[in-house]
Design a binder for these strands. Structure first.
Lengths: 91, 91
DNA sequence: AATTGGATATGCAGTATTTGCATATAGAAA
DNA sequence: TTTCTATATGCAAATACTGCATATCCAATT
């Protein structure tokens, strides 16, 4: 399912036009992103936690040529599913 | 930031009561979950992709006693940040 | 509705990183 | 109040990550 299809569903269940449903959805994701930029984590009970994880610089390898490569440190958004979410898929 | 604080922010930016903002938010997360249950992945352009990842059974260990334990296969929701999302935190 | 530019999936090798087990407790959230 | 979540522990095994070409897929513009 892609964003367009998701918006179509939400349009129905939220009783909004597709344009409004998309606007609503975008506001929510942007709010989460902004929070991650400033704060460091966003916890949503029953769903999961978004966190910014710092990754150290390290040595990698180009699998095509085999040569070693220096990989810079970076940051990545991680999602940790809540307990309830795990149970849904493991009952 | 926790869910309550997120809802409070959304209440303002969506111009909804807190109760309605929470209802809206819950409908969205539930819609995503339902899609994932149907074995799909949910791709949200510019944000990321939610996927159900299957994990194989393996041998684990009780860190308290040190004894080996057989761990059953399981499923887990994974979130893969979109390119745009990575760039926000690595520029 | 169709085209196009951009984003993402795949496969590969080898190393780095993460995962997840049990369990109690502390702290936070509903 | 009562439920949920983070933390901490050692360690084996699963998985992520890198460059890059190709194939596929999506989003946005015509």
């Amino acid at each position: 399912m892609n964003k367009k299809q998701l918006i179509a569903k939400l349009s129905g269940s939220l009783n909004l036009s597709k344009a409004d449903a998309e606007r609503t959805f975008d506001i929510i994701t942007n709010t989460i992103l902004d929070a991650l930029k400033g704060d460091d984590s966003v916890k949503i009970a029953g769903f999961g936690t978004y966190k910014v994880a710092k990754r150290k610089a390290r040595v990698g390898r180009n699998p095509r040529t085999g040569e070693q490569i220096q990989i810079a440190a970076s940051q990545k958004v991680k999602f940790l599913p809540a307990k309830a979410l795990k149970e849904v898929f493991n009952k």
